[in-house]
Design a binder for these strands. Structure first.
Lengths: 232, 232
DNA sequence: CGCTATGTTGATCCATATCAATAAGTGTGG
DNA sequence: CCACACTTATTGATATGGATCAACATAGCG
């Protein structure tokens, strides 16, 4: 793999503390690939041969059952995915597909496991990452089980607003169809949910969103750090 | 803490591979406590001072928001909980309460983190445990988002049947009210869902369940290893 | 024994899904 | 650059899963 990518990968939490020779050894076995949009990178149930790192573009993690499908998460640069399957050497629980043109690093899972065994800094970083992923899913679970779809949307908008800098106007970083799936509802229902937030001064035009009455929206959404704070 | 408990704790996946002196050191700081039923052990949002190990009894992990409450998991002997919060030194995302009279080991979180740093076998075990917990929540997420409540109940029954040995008759290990919460529905809806499975030969009497038509129930439930297999 | 919490059943309401039609983008090739 | 096809978004009408409210039965438990 071209060495030009090393620094950006090295800068990831997962790799920054590890021994240089170990990092080099990981990179030697890795390779970078460019994918067009809508390519299925992995399918659930397949053996976890590679740890993936998204360098650019974005990847949708989804799952299907009995003809239904749901988006579970979106991976954006620069971060890794399917770390847990790699560690446990178990089949992927989710499928992954590119949402746009994406550049992705593939690191053989066995190399990751081997280096994990000899580099305690790397091991520590993996633990931190896994614990964070775990907590992220728990938060999502609480969101799903404790809130109605309207409340989930309201809180999603507040989170997205914060990520975008906190201004009243910002943009959605999802196609609405997939936002609906992520939030656990149908596209039609999402469309109506946006309408349902109009009383709080919400204006939506395509991907542009503006929150007219911040205080009222927050009063309705009741955001909670133990569900909505992604740093926690 | 009384040394009589050491062997059963030591036998846990999490501790079995670690250095004996490190284990002793962990145990020195730990203590065992007996709790009556319905005691809240920890509240979400509190700092994660202790890693907990359930020796006997059972513990409900739940969460509340805006007056609603949901059960996220049940911890049974012998296993640990809130490992992720301990590792990240972050506030608990879930509350915990005893369901019955329970004996619980409390290990100071800072001791766990300290030993983690010096014992690579322990670190490895923690990673394995975290990865498994993560995968368990992902499966639960898929169950929630891809299935109706009737399908969730049917698959839960099949899982429970397998855990109980595979025979047609077995017992629920949940109070129905909490089973409903775990499955993401109301008690009334669960009651009706049991009725809804009668066409598949399901008979329920208190906590005793019997599956009359295994083949038909499976045909309806469509169990999937990537959702329902707890070893994966 | 009662008392209290749990479970069941029925009636009704509400949120969300589904089905169907239309509109609005978006990308492609002529 | 436009016309066309195709996907996505919206809107309306309707169906349905599941929640809520209320009454009653039942089972633990002191």
């Amino acid at each position: 793999m071209p060495e030009s990518h090393y620094p950006e990968i090295r800068a990831l939490n997962l790799f920054e503390g590890m021994d240089e020779t170990h990092f080099q050894s990981l990179m030697r076995g890795a390779y970078v690939q460019n994918f067009p949009p809508q390519i299925e990178l992995i399918g659930e149930g397949e053996p976890s041969d590679f740890l993936h790192v998204v360098l650019s573009g974005s990847v949708d993690l989804f799952s299907s059952w009995n003809g239904r499908e749901t988006s579970l998460a979106t991976v954006r640069p620069i971060s890794t995915f399917i770390l847990a399957a790699t560690i446990r050497n178990a089949p992927y629980l989710m499928s992954a597909r590119t949402l746009e043109k994406s550049r992705i690093v593939l690191i053989p899972s066995q190399d990751v496991r081997a280096i994990f065994d000899v580099d305690s800094n790397f091991a520590r970083a993996i633990v931190a990452e896994l614990a964070q992923c775990y907590r992220a899913v728990i938060k999502s679970q609480k969101d799903l089980k404790l809130r109605t779809s309207l409340e989930r949307l309201a809180n999603y908008l507040l989170r997205q607003q914060k990520r975008a800098g906190g201004g009243a106007a910002f943009e959605l970083d999802f196609e609405k169809r997939r936002l609906a799936s992520v939030l656990g509802m149908t596209p039609e229902n999402l469309s109506r949910a946006f309408k349902g937030l109009q009383p709080y001064g919400l204006i939506v035009d395509g991907i542009r969103v503006s929150i007219g009455n911040q205080a009222e929206l927050e009063k309705f959404a009741k955001p909670n750090p133990l569900i909505d704070d992604f740093t926690l």
